[in-house]
Amino acid sequence: MNYHWNWHIFWDVSPDGANSYLDLLLQGLLWTVATALCAWLLALVLGTCVGVARTARVAPARRLAKWYVEVFRNVPLLVQLFLWYFVLPELLPPAVGLWLKQLHYSSFLTAVVGLGLFMSARVAEQLRAGIESIPPGQRAAATALGLAGSQTYRHVLLPLAFRIILPPLTSEFLNTIKNTSTALTIGLLELTAQARSMQEFTFQVFEAFTAATVLYLAVNLCVVSAMHYVEARLVIPGFIVRK
């Protein structure tokens, strides 16, 4: 193999004069985590609304929610990010468009909005499946007690549904973290972008990408462990465990 390994490269100072390559990679990791958390929050809030709408008794709400999901599911994330980042500013009134393009953290914000909306459709589908898996007698019992529709969702259906879908939701959060890497195409300096940039400056391709790989695996491990703990705390005695 003609490749020259140099694991000390991480401690060399990068072209910006101040940070080592390791520093830059860790900064990238920080941006990855920050973007993922913000996008996930957005996805949860929107996804819950749409997921509930998907199971509503009002047909127009159901149809609207279905189309929402279809739109965000059938276009690749990368294309969606391009639409938000490149196309949206052009479609708005010139002053607004200009303001958007010059926003200080435009890549970050676009990534959060684009990724958040993309994932919200998936959260909505998981929630819908969760709600539909609850025995219909539960909804009937809540209604029979006099609980209004919103109360039934808030106190019976949603608490049950979220516990049921905790494992698939964890997967979707992990997907969110992975998907942040797509935002490097719109200029977000997350982990993969930093690894690529390090590779371009130092030609130490495999060191750079190995570091990124290790960091992604580490984040993955942390999230999975944390979710095991959360699942254990939230388990309903005898309800899901028996499955």
Binding site: K178, Y216, L217, N220
Partner: peptide
């Protein structure tokens, strides 16, 4: 399944020539 596809694309883009060499 734990790695972003973008990263894996880069990996094989740079690794493939070495695999070919091997």
């Amino acid at each position: 399944r734990s790695l972003p596809l973008v990263l894996v694309i880069f990996w094989f883009f740079f690794l493939a020539p070495y695999i070919g060499q091997w």
